Simulated scan of single mutants.
Amino acid sequence: MNETSAETRSVIVERDIPFPAEKIWRALTQPHLIEEWLMKNDFKPVVDHRFNFRGDWGAVDCEVLEVEPNKTLSYTWAALGLESVVTWTLTPTGAGTHLRMEQSGFRPDQEQAYQGAKYGWQRFLAGLEQVVARPD
């Protein structure tokens, strides 16, 4: 394989959620809420904090890269040979918040991981919307 062709792809999932960014931010950053829609974790919204997500299939090693409350959250996502970055972007809209999730860094030889992420994030975001929609 030619190493110079390090062209990577991203999985992007976008949702318009009829709730304020603060409420979505809580679901993205509070460990007990993250566990409900994603996985068990020891997350803290602190730059350079190392944490992991734990699923039945194994664990994801992560490190927080960027935290801008109610706006942007970014962390590395390393699992099963995949070195990627997950970035959440929250943008206020008239009816609530536009949520964008991008996972970047899929190499051409990681088609299975790419397809799995495309499927997985759709499911995860559906769960996230349910958590956010619950009354406080």
Rank of each mutant, 00 (worst) to 15 (best):
L33P: 05
H49I: 06
L73I: 15
L65T: 01
A21F: 03
V132P: 03
L38V: 03
K118I: 10
P108K: 13
P92C: 08
G105I: 10
E68C: 05
A133K: 04
E7C: 04
W37R: 06
A78G: 12
V47N: 07
E66K: 14
H98I: 05
V86I: 15
A78W: 05
I24Q: 05
L65Q: 14
A95R: 14
H98G: 01
V67P: 03
E7H: 12
L80G: 15
K118V: 14
L73D: 09
L99N: 10
L65C: 09
L80F: 14
P135H: 12
V67W: 04
E129L: 03
M1I: 09
T93Q: 06
V13N: 12
R107T: 07
L38F: 14
T93V: 07
I12L: 12
V131F: 10
G96L: 10
R9L: 13
V46Y: 02
V60N: 02
S74T: 13
E66G: 00
A117K: 09
T29R: 08
Q112I: 02
G55H: 04
E129A: 13
Q112T: 13
T8S: 07
A78S: 15
V132W: 06
I24M: 04
V67N: 07
S5L: 11
P31Q: 05
T76E: 06
P20N: 00
V64Y: 02
G55M: 01
T76W: 01
V132N: 06
A27D: 12
E102I: 03
Q115T: 14
S74C: 11
F53C: 11
M39P: 00
Q112Y: 08
A117Y: 11
D42H: 11
S84K: 06
G94E: 15
T29A: 05
M1P: 11
H32N: 09
D16T: 15
N70P: 00
K44D: 00
E63G: 06
I12D: 02
G58K: 11
L33K: 02
V64P: 11
R100Y: 12
Q122L: 13
S5D: 05
G127W: 05
V132K: 11
Y119N: 13
P69D: 07
Q110T: 12
K23S: 10
N70K: 11
